[in-house]
Nucleic acid binder design. Structure first.
Lengths: 215, 215
DNA sequence: TCATAAATGGACTGTCAAGTCCAATTCGGT
DNA sequence: ACCGAATTGGACTTGACAGTCCATTTATGA
């Protein structure tokens, strides 16, 4: 299980539409399984079964399991940050930020607090095992933070936040609260810890507004 | 990899001092490896090598790998909550809580932000795979929270916190921030996210003091 | 249409890991 | 010292999994 070894250009130079579809199908199936069971607990046979493909296909499109896992990380990162970008793009007030909080909590409730954050799970499992995976996930979190920071900057520009508030730092803290809340929720099987953590985070942002005392 | 199946009473009725030592040695070695590589990535052969034991010994003291992993969870829980109990027992003011924050950050810095929280890693890997593991970890976090809540209650009794502040809820949010901060720190290889998350948490506690505006 | 490249099927190999088994050894109490 | 239980050594079995190989089918472009 080494990860960072080969940056081989395994992809065939010419890719047919059918080939691209197969490749995408493999990654999607792998992402789904990895999300539910973890990277190490997902076997290539599982992925083959779930995507209706054969060994040859896996190794035709990916150099090895590591390469496939990197593709999975990439997809999950795009999914999460894409979803967050959508949820956050209209956020430019504290009230809308609270709406975002409610949506996050609702999603967790819908999942019965099972699974946590796809990025968080991958990070916990792979950050110490593979430098390349770690770097990709760090970038993913960075992108997420930038989306959140954009929203916070919009709030600052509207005068809802103090001039000296630091959107990037606030965003980091908010995401930390979210991830930690998800982890505790996953462990306790209640959304309660997530709610408490996010409320704290929102208060923290609110605290950066005006002179400290706001609802 | 099923976990919750057997509550078998595998432990021999009579345990010698030597036997108990061997058992402890196995658990300690396993805990060490699991902490660094994860449960699934740790093989019994690894554990045998690290603890200088044989297959028979593993299966003499534990019904199967699952049982051993449960023992590991128990040990790690005791270590973490024990360590936190020590760090938190003298905490009864906001200033001392800040001292606690500094110690947590210092520990992370000493580890170069590698590894995260042993409980958090186990929770992320096992919460969705094994009901018994999930329950044990939930208890572990609960115990940790109670230690933190005790400190917060002491602060409230001293008049540092408002009467209607809820120590248990505050403690939950603080631990969420810590866990999330550790995860981001592990991914980014900097203590910075942990610092930001814990500062937010401390502010959140401070905000529950007096009427909202305190340093 | 034909040559070539892409795509696929699936058997096969080597390795590693969990778990079993039995024989040998050590220990504790009497 | 002696007996049964506790403890230990380590070979062996079984299965799973990553990765290899080659034959076959399908698409593409001149």
């Amino acid at each position: 299980m080494r990860w960072q070894k080969k940056a081989r250009s395994k992809e065939p130079r010419k890719a047919t539409a059918r080939g691209a579809a197969t490749r995408a199908r493999i990654i999607a199936a792998a992402a789904d399984l990895v999300c539910r069971r973890g990277a190490r607990a997902t076997s290539l046979d599982d992925i083959m079964a779930a995507s209706a493909t054969s060994k040859s296909q896996l190794y035709h499109y990916f150099a090895d399991k590591d390469a496939l896992m990197r593709a999975v990380i990439e997809l999950q990162t795009r999914r999460v940050t894409g979803g967050q970008a959508t949820l956050l793009e209209a956020v430019d007030t504290l009230d809308r930020l609270r709406g975002w909080r409610d949506e996050v909590v609702a999603m967790n409730k819908a999942a019965h607090s099972v699974g946590g954050c796809p990025l968080g799970s991958l990070a916990s499992e792979l950050a110490d095992q593979s430098e390349s995976a770690r770097a990709m996930l760090a970038d993913g979190f960075g992108l997420w933070r930038s989306h959140l920071a954009r929203a916070l900057r919009a709030m600052r520009d509207r005068g809802e936040l103090k001039e000296d508030a630091k959107p990037e730092d606030l965003a980091t803290a908010v995401i930390a609260a979210l991830e930690g809340g998800l982890l505790l929720a996953q462990t306790a099987r209640t959304t309660r810890p997530l709610e408490l953590a996010l409320d704290m985070a929102i208060d923290h942002v609110a605290r950066a507004s005006q002179c400290g005392a706001a609802a």
